[in-house]
């Protein structure tokens, strides 16, 4: 254990907050898709990667200012997520669950290889935006603008999302489909549209996460979505898969856990990536339905 002074500690808290926010944004996409289709969307991490690259190219090649580049990148990512669902998942809607999961693995593999081919294997540096990279001092705590921006953006996005899910008709339909697919269809919900919207929202959140991620950790490689993707699925499982609040809680648990593990026990910093998996296995063994999930009993 290292003993640290208060400013360093606060710095770590800010870092954990921003990492946790990023994980939460990505985890929501997993949990929403799983809630409706019972599918681990293995390609979600790769959609995240695409979001980051779209923003990167919008700024560097098309020389758009950031306030135009980011919305464009988000729109393209959303479109891509919808296309992915249309071509890789919809044809298998009525197949056994293993088939659709394998399709997800195949899609992930395809996007990664496309990424390597089109974007090249060399890492690219995400452009720095002066406005967000200033260093603020609050008392003796120094934080970069990005670290403050991430939790704020996440909070706003989450509020909008909760409004959509809880207060609008579309949100009600989404909840109905995730509760009971067949019954929702019988009640006149257009299930295909709802699934498209769900993929759109999930991909949009992934794109927001990717842009913020790019500003905080400005190194882009085509495989950058692999690890965050897996960890965020884990975050969704920890929180109770299918539950959006659970995904947010799970994301923050992982974010805080990882940063604090490295901060307090530097000897274990090599095991940082293992933290999520260890927590996952503990949760699965103790309470497989996750923190917010309700245990279901299978009837014969």
């Amino acid at each position: 254990m290292t003993i640290m002074d208060f400013p360093t500690f606060m710095q770590q808290v800010v870092n954990s907050l921003s990492l946790g926010s990023l994980y939460a944004l990505l985890a929501i996409g997993y949990t929403m898709v799983y809630g409706i289709l019972r599918l681990i969307n293995f390609a979600h991490g790769d959609i995240f990667m695409l979001g980051a690259y779209f923003a990167f190219y919008a700024i560097t090649i098309f020389t758009l200012p950031w306030y135009l580049a980011f919305p464009v990148a988000i729109i393209f990512t959303v479109l891509f997520g919808i296309i992915l669902e249309r071509f890789a998942y919809r044809p298998l809607r009525n197949s056994p669950r293993i088939a659709i999961m394998i399709s997800a693995i195949g899609a992930s593999y395809l996007i990664e290889n496309l990424g390597v081919m089109i974007f090249g294997g060399r890492p690219e540096a995400f452009p720095t935006i002066q406005l967000f990279n200033q260093i603020f001092s609050i008392g003796s705590v120094k934080v970069s603008g990005v670290s403050l921006l991430i939790p704020i953006v996440t909070l706003v996005v989450l509020l909008v999302l909760f409004y959509v899910i809880n207060k609008t008709k579309t949100g009600m339909a989404m909840r109905a489909v995730s509760k009971d697919y067949e019954a929702a269809r019988l009640m006149g919900v257009d299930v295909n549209t709802i699934i498209t919207i769900t993929f759109g929202i999930g991909s949009g959140l992934a794109a927001v996460g990717a842009i913020l991620w790019g500003m905080k950790y400005p190194q882009l490689i085509p495989l950058m979505g692999l690890m965050p993707g897996l960890k965020c699925f884990i975050a969704a499982v920890i929180g109770g898969i299918g539950d959006v609040r659970g995904a947010v809680i799970g994301g923050f648990i992982l974010g805080f856990g990882e940063i604090m593990l490295v901060a307090f026990i530097p000897d274990l910093s090599g095991y940082r990536d293992a933290f999520a998996f260890v927590v996952l296995i503990l949760v699965l063994l103790i309470k497989p339905s996750g923190i917010m999930g309700k245990a279901t009993v299978e009837k014969v």
């Binding site: 019972r38 897996l230 996952l280």
Partner: peptide
Amino acid sequence: DYLAIATLGFAEI
């Protein structure tokens, strides 16, 4: 899926 992700997790560990 839980089995898939748990075995994947162990392999990564």
